[in-house]
Computed example of a mutant assay.
Amino acid sequence: MADVLVPDVLVVDSLVRRFGDLTAVDDVSFRIAPGETYGLLGPNGAGKTTTISMIAGLIAADEGTVTVAGEAMTPRTTAPKRHLGLVPQDLAIYPDLTGRENLTLFGRLQGLTGSELKSRVGEVLELIGLADRAKDRSKEYSGGMKRRLNIGIGLLNRPTLLILDEPTVGVDPQSRNAILESVEALAVEGMAVLYTTHYMEEAERLCDRIGIIDTGQLQAEGTRDELIRLTGGVDTIRIGGSGDLSGAAQELRQLPGVERVDIERRSATLTVKDAPALVAQVVGTAASYGVTLSDVEIARPDLESVFLHLTGKALRD
């Protein structure tokens, strides 16, 4: 039986947006499939917010198209917006309303009424972990609780595509972890998620694929491992101990996948393509030369190094 082709939830095709002489977004294209979390990473001023604004239909593109759940998105279209949940970086809640009242208000704005509205508000309060604080005014919430309420508002209409723009900025570690766990659960349930963040470890944890944007252009995209391979990233294995390290180094250099071996007085550092696949052979070879190992360390390239390689700057610059 042939596989059924599931259409992408979001298709961004050749987006361009200019502000006077500045091209803020320059020919950006990417796709997000159902159940996929796509990370859009870039330093301040890279074009992330402008791209998100066009995807959400808040501003018009000068060139290119956005399709959400098969429908064309523009500032003038309303039908595709029913598929969308947008959680902006700036809090969009009313501080004098309780958590339940905030959700009820926004639910009504999204067309929910009656028992459906009441049921959905209750479900979202449970999902974001605020059921026990539902009657408290949101101005009494901690920063993390306000962020979770902000996300809850974006979930009320059961969106096909959820856009999360820097959702963990300024929150405590416990609330941050709760937010990340919620995002992971949403992807498991089949929701497509577009996620921007300044925290590389969040992208490492959450995102199935990542697009790196800088100066308005998508510099590269792919899975974590694809991006690392794209930039020629290599692993290192460092072994420390006593014995005939120099003798062992001659044989270590012959192992498939070993590109280089550097010897110091009591350690050897190997540059390799796939450290986890090679470490057992490295340890075994060293032992066969009478080397008594005191430590073994593996270092792998991360997204931070990939980002620096592609853009010449750190993510939080």
Rank of each mutant, 00 (worst) to 15 (best):
G57R: 02
G57V: 01
G57D: 04
L58K: 12
I59N: 05
I59V: 14
I59R: 08
A60P: 13
A60E: 14
A60C: 10
A61Y: 13
A61V: 12
D62L: 12
D62S: 12
G64N: 07
T65L: 01
V66I: 12
T67W: 10
T67Y: 05
T67F: 07
V68F: 00
G70C: 05
G70F: 10
M73R: 02
T74H: 04
T74V: 05
P75E: 11
R76G: 13
R76V: 10
R76L: 14
R76C: 04
R76D: 14
T77S: 10
T77P: 00
T77R: 08
T78I: 13
A79T: 14
P80G: 06
P80I: 03
K81A: 04
K81Y: 01
H83S: 15
L84Q: 09
L84C: 09
L84K: 08
L84N: 03
G85S: 02
G85L: 02
G85K: 03
L86W: 11
V87C: 13
V87A: 03
V87D: 06
V87K: 02
P88S: 10
P88F: 13
P88V: 12
Q89A: 13
Q89H: 10
Q89P: 14
D90C: 04
L91Y: 01
L91T: 05
A92R: 10
A92H: 04
A92S: 13
A92W: 02
A92K: 02
A92T: 04
I93G: 09
Y94V: 08
Y94S: 04
Y94C: 01
Y94R: 06
Y94G: 02
Y94W: 09
P95Y: 02
P95V: 01
P95M: 01
P95C: 02
D96Y: 11
D96A: 08
D96E: 15
L97Y: 09
L97C: 05
L97A: 09
T98S: 13
G99M: 08
R100T: 07
R100S: 11
E101F: 08
E101H: 08
N102Y: 08
N102R: 09
N102M: 07
N102G: 05
L103I: 06
L103P: 05
L103W: 05
T104S: 14
T104P: 00
T104N: 06
F106K: 08
F106W: 10
F106L: 06
G107H: 03
L109V: 10
L109R: 00
Q110K: 14
G111F: 00
G111D: 00
L112C: 11
L112K: 05
L112I: 12
T113C: 10
G114I: 10
G114E: 07
S115Y: 11
S115Q: 15
S115T: 15
L117V: 08
K118W: 01
K118Q: 14
S119K: 15
R120V: 10
G122I: 03
G122R: 01
G122K: 05
E123H: 11
E123K: 10
V124G: 07
V124Q: 07
V124A: 06
L125V: 03
L125H: 02
E126G: 09
E126Y: 01
E126V: 06
E126H: 07
L127R: 15
I128A: 03
I128F: 06
I128T: 06
G129H: 08
G129I: 04
L130M: 03
A131T: 11
D132G: 03
D132A: 13
D132T: 13
A134Y: 11
K135R: 15
K135M: 12
K135H: 15
D136C: 07
